[in-house]
């Protein structure tokens, strides 16, 4: 599919929906984890695998250690929700959620999973609710990755066109921040466009 099939109107709609979804996520975290966040404008790009690699190279530092949590979601639209935190942020989160100054790796992993869980379910649920559809979530998994090898070379074969929604989640008082990537491929992008078209039709009707 061509990028131009996704017009600036489509992108605007998706961006606004993401914005609302992010607002919900921030509020959920404030409510459930008592951490108050600063919202940032989400960034949207439609690209290919090389573009994604370039994007990740720019977004992440190659000499930093990251906790990367990936959670799959599926339904009418499906894809991968990826939450990336530096090990410092992850340790701060583990410390905050488990009341220990030196959280062990398992504590940190679980804390990262918990935050990702809240983020992904609120963001994706809100997004899909606005688009009047539903998705199913799968168990997330976290791995520690050095540098910006977020996506292995063998993974690149499975995606053609990719939509990247990225934003920063920041909880300054706890020195916790992370980057969110939502990756979706061809079929989802087409379906997403159809759903947005429906929404736009309603609006202009």
């Amino acid at each position: 599919m061509q990028t131009d099939e996704f017009s600036s109107d489509h992108l605007d709609v998706l961006k606004e929906l993401m914005n609302i979804a992010m607002g919900n996520a921030t509020a959920s975290i404030a409510d459930l984890l008592q951490a108050f966040g600063t919202m940032h404008i989400p960034h949207l790009t439609i690209t290919d695998m090389d573009g994604l690699k370039k994007y990740i190279d720019e977004a992440l530092k190659y000499d930093e250690k990251y906790y990367v949590t990936k959670q799959l979601f599926g339904g009418i639209i499906g894809g991968e929700f990826i939450f990336v935190m530096t090990d410092e942020s992850a340790a701060n989160l583990g410390n905050y959620l488990y009341d220990v100054s030196q959280p062990n790796d398992a504590d940190i992993m679980d804390a990262v999973i918990e935050l990702t869980n809240i983020l992904s379910s609120t963001i994706i649920s809100r997004l899909t609710e606005e688009l009047k559809t539903k998705v199913q979530f799968f168990a997330p998994s976290t791995e520690i990755i050095s540098g910006n090898h977020l996506i292995g070379d063998e993974d690149t074969l499975n995606y053609h066109k990719i939509i990247i929604v990225s934003t920063v989640m920041e909880f300054q008082s706890h020195k916790i921040s992370g980057q969110i990537f939502i990756l979706a491929r061809d079929e989802t992008i087409i379906r997403l466009r159809e759903l947005i078209d429906q929404k736009l039709e309603e609006l202009y009707a």
């Binding site: 959920s28 409510d31 459930l32 984890l33 959620l97 790796d105 398992a106 992993m109 679980d110 990262v112 999973i113 918990e114 869980n117 809240i118 379910s121 609120t122 649920s125 979530f137 168990a139 997330p140 998994s141 976290t142 791995e143």
Partner: peptide
Amino acid sequence: RKIRTTLRLATPTFYDASL
């Protein structure tokens, strides 16, 4: 906290099973 999240967000939550 996980139970609360599950109920509040009406969504499944998970434990880390990797370590």
